[in-house]
Design a protein around this nucleic acid. Structure first.
Length: 241
DNA sequence: AACTTATCCAACCGCCGCTAC
DNA sequence: AGTAGCGGCGGTTGGATAAGT
């Protein structure tokens, strides 16, 4: 294992401690339970292994599909600014599954599978491009670096003769097309928050449904992560998928 | 049967945001 | 305003086990 494995005796001590004192106050758990483990180990052991109703075994097909969809939605860390909880959010949609389970499954199975798929698609796409090369270079777009200085202004877009065109993945409020790189940068702007990755491609703007709840904070100072509201938003998101 | 390689997953680590003081 | 302590997270590690040779 990655560290010292928990014994059956330790599990029982931890379980009894949690049943008696409840979850939380993890810094006191090692003392109360009489365990020679740190607070983090105790918490992790409980959440990932000892907690009731934890589902074991392989993931069902519908679970896998949901993981893929939600990861596509949330996978870009910049989408939720710095307050990202991708795996726990996904796990929250999968009853009985822990964030660690989902993360491990993604790392072991899906990331390789999907990257292989993407590589294959890119290869096929490249073959198609080569086969359809015209004598005249394709027109494409170059973004200048201006937007780093002026976050709310649109970058200057120039035509160029580069042979590898960018793909547009969204449009802004004025209906102007945006490229992936630009969207990521604009999402990073604290007050900007105009677009949210893939949602932009679905035609939804970040502010259309409560930006405060999704980000977990606002300019007015929402300082507490409101889980219930987030789950409500997740329901809305799921409906969009 | 013995050895090597690949896969799985529990556990650890470092970092971050929040809260209380 | 600064800071220490805490809970919580994602990324990574490495031992156990399965599969392959």
């Amino acid at each position: 294992m990655g560290g010292v494995a928990w014994t059956e005796e330790e599990d029982q001590l931890l379980k009894k401690c949690i049943e008696r004192y409840g979850e939380g106050k993890w810094h006191r758990v090692p003392l109360l339970a009489g365990l020679n483990r740190c607070r983090k180990s105790c918490r992790l052991r409980w959440l990932n292994y000892l907690r009731p109703n934890i589902k074991r075994g392989s993931f069902a097909e519908d679970e896998v599909q949901l993981i893929i969809k939600l990861h596509k939605l949330l996978g870009n860390k910049q989408v939720l600014h710095t307050y990202t909880r991708v795996w726990s959010l996904i796990a929250g949609r999968l009853p009985g599954r822990t964030a660690n389970d989902v993360k491990n499954y993604w790392n072991c199975h899906l990331s390789k599978k999907l990257s292989a798929q993407e590589t294959e698609e890119e290869y096929q796409s490249a073959v198609m491009n080569v086969e359809s090369i015209s004598p005249k270079p394709a027109r494409s777009i170059v973004i200048t670096q201006d937007y780093h200085v002026a976050p709310n202004s649109l970058p200057a877009i120039q035509e160029s003769s580069m042979s590898a065109p960018f793909d547009f993945i969204g449009v802004d409020q004025q209906g102007r097309e945006l490229m992936k790189e630009e969207i990521e940068i604009r999402v990073q702007e604290p007050a900007g928050g105009v677009f949210i990755g893939d949602l932009a491609t679905e035609g939804h703007q970040f502010g259309e449904f409560d930006e405060v709840n999704v980000l977990g904070r606002s300019d007015e100072g929402c300082s507490k992560w409101d889980w219930d509201d987030l789950m409500l938003d997740m329901d809305l998101w799921t409906d969009l998928l």
